[in-house]
């Protein structure tokens, strides 16, 4: 008959009922691990990232130098870890700038509607129409390639998409009855914004923040690649990738490891964004 033996069924049932770690938890966990590693760089790395030792230039992977060494004999493992600090700092700064600027921009447009809305959104469109890399190139050439400037410029670049997103989710929330009720009892704009709109949109804005973080890293890497990123002797993952690229045929580890670091982080950020998005959609259904 079609009936399965009883023990098999219960065993499968038991397996099915075991708590399974969610994709979100796994990807967020990997991201967290990366951040911790990078922050704890002085504890993890056994070498100074900028200490040169021409005697061991272009060494391959070994127990002493896990990722090998570069053209000046610097330990690549240490340089990737320390480079991650700069990359994450720039990406993190850019995300904060984009979030603050973009959310204010989008919410204001949604709340004021009419001509203000029109103006704010047209200017967002205009900014989005300029090729991102070109805009960044001009700004960085003008203001210099400091960590702060990179974070600011990239943050400003990501603000318009964030503003669009913020406006859309704000308008959605404003159509809901709890918002209408708040208008009806005479809540002031500040309260509408901070107590009603923000808490109810923050999960969707978090999705955008994760996407922004990934975009920021790609932009930073692109800028570094054309020489407008972090300046030597410091290096971000982008700069490392660029330097390594020149020596791709002598020492593949040089380019591969920074590239993998970038890839892994961006991949995990995208998974987190996807999962968060799906989750907040489910919360609404």
């Amino acid at each position: 008959m079609a009936e399965l033996p009883v023990p098999a069924v219960t065993a499968r049932e038991r397996l099915r009922r075991l708590p399974r770690p969610s994709l979100l938890a796994v990807s967020a966990g990997i991201l967290l691990l990366l951040v911790v590693l990078v922050l704890a760089a002085p504890l993890v790395a056994r070498y100074d990232p900028n200490e040169q030792d021409p005697a061991i230039a272009f060494a391959g992977s070994s127990w002493a130098h896990w990722f090998g060494t570069d053209d000046l004999g610097r330990d690549l493992f240490a340089r990737v870890l320390y480079g991650g600090r700069l990359t994450l700092l720039i990406a993190g700064g850019a995300v904060v700038v984009a979030f603050l600027l973009g959310t204010a921009w989008g919410f204001l447009a949604a709340l004021r509607r009419g001509i203000v809305d029109e103006l704010l959104m047209r200017s967002a469109d205009a900014l989005m129409a300029i090729p991102q890399l070109l805009f960044a190139l001009v700004c960085i050439s003008a203001f210099g390639a400091s960590t702060l400037n990179l974070a600011l410029v990239i943050g400003v670049l990501l603000a318009p998409t964030t503003a669009r997103m913020a406006r859309t989710v704000a308008l959605q929330e404003m159509n809901r009855d709890y918002y209408a009720a708040a208008v009806a009892y005479g809540a002031r704009r500040r309260r509408l914004l901070l107590a009603e709109l923000l808490p109810n949109t923050v999960s969707l804005l978090a999705v955008q923040a994760a996407i922004n973080a990934a975009s920021a890293m790609i932009l930073e890497a692109s800028l570094s690649f054309v020489g407008l990123g972090i300046q030597p002797p410091d290096a971000s993952w982008g700069t490392l990738l660029k330097e390594g690229y020149q020596f791709l045929y002598q020492r593949w580890e040089y380019a591969i490891f920074p590239a993998l670091a970038i890839l892994l982080t961006i991949w995990m950020l995208n998974v987190v964004a996807d999962q968060l998005g799906a989750r907040s959609n489910r919360g609404r259904a």
Partner: peptide, 14 residues
């Protein structure tokens, strides 16, 4: 004042 149709939709879930 006003009371709407959807009881849960009209309360801020946060």
């Amino acid at each position: 004042q006003v009371v709407f149709q959807d009881p849960h939709g009209s309360l801020n879930r946060r």
